[in-house]
Design a protein around this nucleic acid. Structure first.
Length: 490
RNA sequence: CGGGGCGUAGCCCAGCGGCUAAGGCGCUUGGUUUGGGACCAAGAGAUCGUGAGUUCAAUUCUCACCGCCCCGACCA
């Protein structure tokens, strides 16, 4: 990263740290504009998240499957709202062959034009539903609960590392049900899973709720989402779950014969989270020193750095290091020993700090002598001695504590930056500084749009937990029953 | 697609109508170091974005093209 950016980062930390400090070590931009290369360490974080979520998705009765990345254009155009929602950001395959021209240059062979263009999936509803229509004949075939891990492409005009890349990795669930109630329950259940993932695993507090009509998924009946607050007060949509109603079923002829021998359209859902979560993770916990990882997600939970002074003490130090490493591994702690002798102490420490390893342990001759290790927690500044006896228990406890305290810290920030607001002109000023604004809204899309135009703030969600109360829309003064969250978002 | 900026080594960049294109980071080798970003020495690494023009001479000036970044529009 350039020096200019570093300087600017210091001026305005929240704007820059995603790009500058940690993301650079986790990922770099790809060769195609807006795509990203995720480096092994960054991928290890995604991989843990993926494994944890995948287990949970299977536990809740879903099966993994895989569908093609190319979607015939005709599939895409069957659901009207869906088309208009995604049409502007699709990568399109038009040819299937290259050739060398007279000048010896590699060109697209005009002879090899596809009869029907293929869309690189921006999401897989259409292709999966077309399969569903063949798979589903009877009420006995339902529910069908499918999940897929895949890459997708959305040709965004403006990209941002981790948060909005042209190509990204995600998980997308697609289900079909016999009844509306069942589909609704499924959509809500999976949002709960995402909430659990965000809060219990990533230590990232979220607000769950329903999206407004303007913000909902193209083609959905209702969209539910979890919204997280980043350190700069901006909102990040961290996961969505859609009750698709019967719209897609009608477009793709997903029909079944019910117990009364009548043809019915299925009720569908879809839900997904993406590598955007890694961006959310970075922007929730990171500090000026780099990434801070919650222990549950950290590929390396404990790093041990042996301090070798001379050949005499080296043996004893390495013995102590190996012993502790093995004991920790027995206790299922993910531990790494940094035994590189060509790096200086300082470099090693900065590196692991930057990578967000929760606990760092140093063992040198002095520590062996005193039957202790030096321990530093990533979320605290100090370094303190820890007796070797009982060290493993102390460490596992510390990891649990850190998981909790990271969540509490983030939740405190979320609470402190959430406001009830009734005065629109006050809102327009305060929203500049970020935060969640609980405000009354009449439910009219026109007010919503005007507010967006005037303040760049959108309705993030209508929180499930929000109690009814009488009020008037902060924009137009018409009656409102509930407050919704307005915020600026990524 | 509008407005602005920038393309010189893996990265950050200096430079100038002319001589062997400078420096820092990183890398390699050897040595000394090692409890918070080490030091010394020697080295490798550059079609100066591409093409054309002006000129005795272009990395430098002009034009075109390509690419990237930022701000909008778009999207989330």
């Amino acid at each position: 990263m350039s020096n200019k950016q570093l300087t600017k980062r210091e001026e305005n930390f929240s704007q820059w740290y995603l790009d500058v400090i940690t993301a650079a070590d986790l990922a770099e931009h790809g060769d195609v504009k807006g795509t990203m290369i995720i480096k092994p360490y960054g991928y290890a974080i995604w991989e843990r998240l993926q494994r944890i979520l995948d287990d949970k998705i299977k536990e809740t009765g879903h099966q993994n499957a895989y569908f093609p990345m190319f979607i015939p254009k005709s599939f895409f155009s069957k659901e009207a709202a869906h088309v208009s929602g995604f049409a502007k950001e699709c990568a399109v395959v038009t040819h299937y062959r290259l050739k060398t021209d007279e000048k010896g240059e590699l060109v697209v062979d005009p002879e090899a034009k596809l009869q029907e263009e293929l869309i690189v999936r921006p999401t897989s509803e259409t292709i999966i539903h077309s399969a569903f229509s063949r798979w589903i004949k009877s009420w006995r075939d339902l529910p069908i609960l499918i999940n897929q891990w895949a890459n997708i492409v959305r040709w965004e005009m403006r990209t941002r590392l981790f948060l909005r890349t042209s190509e990204f990795l995600w998980q997308e669930g697609h289900t079909a049900h016999a009844t509306e109630a069942e589909a609704e329950a499924e959509a809500r259940k999976m949002l709960e899973v995402y909430k659990w993932l965000a809060q219990d695993i990533m230590a990232m507090p979220v607000i769950d709720g329903q999206k407004s009509e303007a913000e909902k998924f193209a083609g959905a009946l209702r969209t539910y989402a979890i919204e997280a607050m980043m350190q700069d007060g901006k909102s990040l949509q961290a996961g969505t779950s859609h009750n698709l109603g019967q719209g897609f079923a009608k477009a793709f002829e997903v029909k079944f014969v019910d117990e009364n021998n009548t043809q019915q359209y299925a009720w569908m859902t879809s839900w997904g989270v993406s590598t955007r979560l890694i961006g959310g993770l970075i922007m929730t916990h990171s500090d000026n020193k780099g990434l801070v990882l919650p222990p549950q997600l950290a590929p390396i939970q404990v790093v041990i750095i042996p301090i070798i002074k001379d050949d005499n003490s080296a043996k004893k130090v390495l013995e102590a290091v190996t012993k502790l490493k093995e004991d920790l591994q027995t206790a299922a702690v993910r531990v790494h020993v940094d035994s590189r002798d060509f790096e200086t102490m300082g470099n090693k420490m900065y590196e692991w700090e930057k990578k967000g390893v929760p606990l760092r342990i140093e063992i040198g001759p002095r520590d062996v002598e005193n039957k202790q290790v030096m321990l530093a927690c990533r979320d605290q500044d100090k370094k303190s001695p820890l007796p070797l006896s009982g060290a493993v228990t102390a460490i596992t406890d510390l990891l649990l504590d850190m998981q909790k305290s990271l969540f509490i810290k983030a939740q405190k920030r979320l609470t402190e930056n959430s406001y009830n607001i009734d005065n629109y002109s006050e809102f327009t000023k305060k929203v500049e500084n970020g935060g969640f604004f609980y405000a009354h809204w009449c439910g009219n899309a026109k007010c919503e749009e005007e507010i967006k135009q005037e303040t760049k703030a959108t309705i993030r969600c209508m929180p499930f937990a929000q109690k009814e109360e009488k009020g008037v829309c902060m924009k137009c003064n018409k009656d409102s029953k509930k407050r919704v969250i307005f915020a600026r978002a990524y």
